[in-house]
Design a protein around this nucleic acid. Structure first.
Lengths: 193, 193
DNA sequence: TGACTTTGAGAACGAACGTTCTCTAGATTG
DNA sequence: CAATCTAGAGAACGTTCGTTCTCAAAGTCA
């Protein structure tokens, strides 16, 4: 077996483990899902699992990393289909709306991870912080492109954050509509100034 | 010992247990704190602990109940010192700001509980839902008193929710300022219509 | 083929947790 | 005082979990 092939195989295995763990962790919480259940869902031996991820903490971090990339590419894709920066900002809330409508939606995985593991694994808290900062930067870039004052960005981000937790707890996707409506008012006011 | 005295004693004991558990649960998470640690912090025997709360689930629910009442009275007090309904709405964000500045602040306890225990204890998920609905009603009542359209209420609530999670993860209280600034714009726009 | 390495299945281990049980010392009551 | 009840301290129990270890089967290569 060539080096390239073995690396691909290893990545495939790791990706399969991460995908299985992500579904379980997100649906039921990190502490409620044991390594043995991940092993079973991923169809892999416990030895291989610990070979790819030397501890549960490492696996959790890999899952969050993958989740961050999924989020980032989802937002980027939604924004890129908009005609201009203003519509791009609003597209974020449409993206949220479709996410909230997904049957498996259970809030922001990073907020959940922060609350559950933030104190026991500081690395998890830091990863959540990085994820949120990354989103803030994305919004700030769009706000700048739209020609609005920079203070608009954290306000729009707050609406997105609030919509996520509200949708999770209420079980309804309507918070995305409310967030979008509020964002429209804030953007209009910022552009009129 | 009279019936009244024994009831008071029982309530004192229960309140002490709840207060100790609240501090521990909020600071470190529910699953990270065992019954024995609660027992030790409350200075009570394990037998008495289980006599007051027959299970950890019951204790968690009592802690959330107490947290809800603290939140409710804090908001009510902050709002009541405002000159009018509009200022009352803004006072909510000032209240959040002072809460975020507290060293022990670690996000909304209900959001944390929902993420950590929502799937294993449906009663916890329902309690979080009730808490958030209660807040929505409070905001809606203020919005009505201010004479603004009812659609403003969920928008203002989203800002408050977003500020809480953002403050928790970022470790900064500035999200309360951003939320307040956005709320001012939304309220002004709603009243001008 | 035959020696050696790798792998998978799952048993095993040590720790932690929620909950219950035991035992003893002190309080209560007739 | 003697008999009975209560309550506290913590041992014990059964389970779960993260992690490691065992052992036999399969694969590799000279």
């Amino acid at each position: 077996m060539t080096v390239a092939a073995s690396r691909t195989l290893a990545n495939d295995t790791a990706a399969r483990i991460v995908a299985a763990a992500d579904v379980l962790y997100y649906a039921r919480g990190f502490q409620a899902v044991g390594m043995d259940e991940v092993r079973s869902a991923a169809g892999v031996s416990l030895k291989k699992l610990y070979q790819e991820f030397p501890s549960k903490e490492a696996l959790v971090l890999a899952v969050l990393e993958a989740r961050h990339e999924m989020w980032e590419s989802g937002v980027t894709s939604a924004v890129s289909h908009a005609a201009n920066a203003r519509d791009g900002l609003l597209a974020i809330y449409d993206y949220l709306s479709s996410w909230f409508s997904d049957e498996s939606f259970r809030g922001c995985g990073f907020i959940n991870a922060f609350g559950e593991l933030g104190t026991v694994f500081p690395s998890v808290a830091e990863m959540a912080r990085e994820h949120k900062e990354s989103f803030q930067r994305d919004v700030a870039a769009l706000v700048a492109r739209a020609g609005a004052d920079a203070s608009l960005a954290p306000q729009l981000a707050l609406l997105a954050e609030g919509a996520q937790t509200t949708a999770a707890i209420s079980g309804s996707a309507e918070s995305a509509r409310h967030a979008r409506a509020a964002a429209e008012v804030l953007i209009e006011a910022a552009l009129a100034r």
